[in-house]
């Protein structure tokens, strides 16, 4: 089975501090890590490979330093790594990013399943995975919490919903995005780290993956960021005290106001 895992390098949020004057993130000097949700995608890809054989190719679109994230993915069990990097990709929104990744995947050609984390911890859009599926015109299942079965041409997965979960069967190739319930990512291994150090990371640019220049980077991005601001802090809640009946009645009234207005 040919497994593709798409990852993103993000600032380590446990280290990010806020500039108290501007209320923006201080990104300088903050270490970059693999997007935490993508670590579950890597682990699931490697587990599928362990079960069915084949190989895991890890892909990222990003600046040259994103190579570090790819090497870490190799140390966790991925076999091949591709860095898609080009100045022309700068300013990509989720549409242009998923287009670029889909072109990369087209060039890889042989693929059975594409795995993404459910969203990135910096942008939080959860759109790139579904975008890849749309560009490639293949099925997608988002928020997968378990792969029940996977074999040549067919998969059965559990999809987490707010109410419970759905069981979905699909033909392959398929795009899935995964939630953290799906597995517990392994620690890197020393032999994996040695392999990662010596591994060759393929580097492709916009021409290599035959991108339409109008579909990439800022030009290819329909999204425009108008303004970035810090949402006002949540006001403290109100604690109702007193006789149970009165409190319940009051709570019901307050809820009515919220719902009906």
């Amino acid at each position: 089975m040919n497994i593709i895992v798409c990852i993103k390098q993000v600032p380590n949020t446990t280290q990010v501090r806020i500039n108290p004057e501007t209320n923006t993130l201080i990104r300088e000097g903050v270490e970059s890590v693999i997007n935490p949700f993508d670590t579950y995608a890597i682990e699931e890809g490697v587990r599928i490979k362990d079960k069915t054989g084949g190989k895991v190719t890890v892909v990222t679109m990003g600046p040259p330093q994103a190579e570090d994230a790819l090497r870490e993915a190799i140390s966790l069990g991925c076999d091949e790594a591709i860095l898609v990097s080009d100045r022309k990709f700068a300013g990509s929104d989720t549409w242009a990013t998923s287009y670029t990744l889909s072109q990369t995947i087209r060039k890889i050609k042989d693929y059975d399943i594409i795995i993404c984390g459910k969203q990135a911890s910096d942008g939080d859009t959860a759109q790139v995975g579904p975008g890849i599926s749309a560009h490639l015109d293949i099925p997608q299942v988002t928020y997968v919490r378990k792969i029940e079965e996977i074999s040549a041409g067919h998969a059965k997965v559990e999809r987490l919903t707010e109410e419970g979960y759905e069981i979905i069967e699909s033909k392959l190739p398929l795009v899935i995005t995964v939630v953290k319930e799906i597995n517990e990512p392994r620690m890197p291994s020393l032999k994996g780290k040695m392999r990662a150090k010596n591994a060759q990371v393929l580097k492709w640019n916009a021409d290599d993956i035959e991108c339409n220049v109008n579909d990439i980077g800022l030009n290819g991005s329909p999204t425009r960021v108008i303004k970035i601001f810090t949402p006002p802090p949540r006001k403290g809640g109100e604690i109702l005290k007193g006789d149970t009946h009165e409190v319940v009645a009051k709570a019901a009234d307050l809820l009515k106001n919220v719902i009906i207005g």
Binding site: M187, S189, L190, K193, M194
Partner: peptide
């Protein structure tokens, strides 16, 4: 390089696990 790798990985295991 190899010793750094051992140190880094073992520290990660110690810290996280």
């Amino acid at each position: 390089e190899e010793q750094k790798m051992i140190k880094e990985l073992c520290h990660k295991i110690a810290l996280e696990k």
